[in-house]
């Protein structure tokens, strides 16, 4: 049923904060929990979602071809072999001549909503046309940011634009959190970022080398059996997104050693 489909924009403003990685992992996690999920790569200039999902060799058509009636939607959708509930649709080809318009994106998201429960739209970086196209196709948004000045500033610009559209809810994911640096107060805290952007927190994702390793393999963490901090975080985000009341991981409780406990003591507010 189209009305029930949740079309969620995954955006950040700044590039490289982890939009695509979140989209891939969230897509797999949602599909794995039984929700039919489509991931739409709206970043057709520099598309990467296919790489993270290990589907780069299986793309034949794009959404543009569907709109031009060169193929059916079924033919353009790339089903994930290990997770049949998940399908990828690249919006366009990097060599594409005509850029898409907001109406095109709306059309695609309408087609997808006839087949899927959740559509995740991986938005290009920036706040220009690519972002506005992707935005016009969505009902909800997840803003991804890092606990860094430039990422938070750009996220703020994006939230400003989202607030003037009728997108809601807008939720926040803080990515690449380093508990040790936060404990040493050498990194903006979760509370800092959240209070500055004043968005409901959907989750945090801990910095984790496994993310790079899984990207190398083209196999999202949520698909693998490895035990990793980031994987746990992605699964949490996925469950919270589907309405389950899972507490957000507190980076302060991540270290269990005596040194970590001492660091926590040093963070206590005295006045």
């Amino acid at each position: 049923m189209p009305e029930d489909t949740r079309t969620i924009l995954i955006c950040s403003g700044k590039g490289g904060v982890g939009k695509t990685t979140l989209t891939a992992n969230l897509g797999i996690a949602l599909a794995n929990s039984g929700v039919t999920t489509a991931v739409l790569d709206a970043d057709f200039g520099l598309r990467n979602l296919d790489l993270l999902l290990g589907l780069e060799n299986r793309i034949i058509y794009t959404a543009q071809d569907v709109l031009d009636k060169n193929c059916r939607l079924d033919q353009a959708l790339v089903r994930h072999k290990k997770e049949p509930n998940l399908a990828l649709l690249p919006a366009g080809d990097p060599r594409m001549l005509d850029w898409m318009k907001p109406e095109d994106m709306k059309q695609i998201s309408k087609l997808l909503s006839e087949k899927f429960d959740i559509v995740l739209v991986d938005c290009p970086a920036g706040v220009e046309d690519g972002f506005k196209n992707a935005l016009s196709a969505c009902k909800e948004a997840i803003v991804v940011t890092n606990p860094e000045l430039s990422a938070v500033r750009d996220a703020d610009r994006v939230i400003g634009i989202l607030n003037t559209s009728d997108i809601k809810p807008i939720q926040l994911v803080i990515n690449r959190v380093r508990p040790n640096m936060m404990a040493n107060q050498e990194m903006l805290s979760i509370e800092d970022v959240q209070s500055i952007l004043s968005l409901p927190l959907l989750g945090i994702v801990l910095e984790d080398e496994q993310v790079i390793i899984s990207t190398n393999r083209g196999e999202p963490l949520t698909l693998s059996n490895t035990k990793s901090p980031a994987k746990k975080c992605y699964l949490n985000v996925s469950q919270r997104l589907t309405g389950k009341d899972i507490p957000i991981i507190d980076p302060k409780n991540e270290g269990k050693s005596l040194k970590d406990k001492f660091m926590r003591l040093m963070q206590t507010k005295i006045f």
Partner: peptide
Amino acid sequence: TSSANTARERLQLVL
């Protein structure tokens, strides 16, 4: 002072 404080203050100003 720790850099997180500096970051917070700079961010609030620029925002």
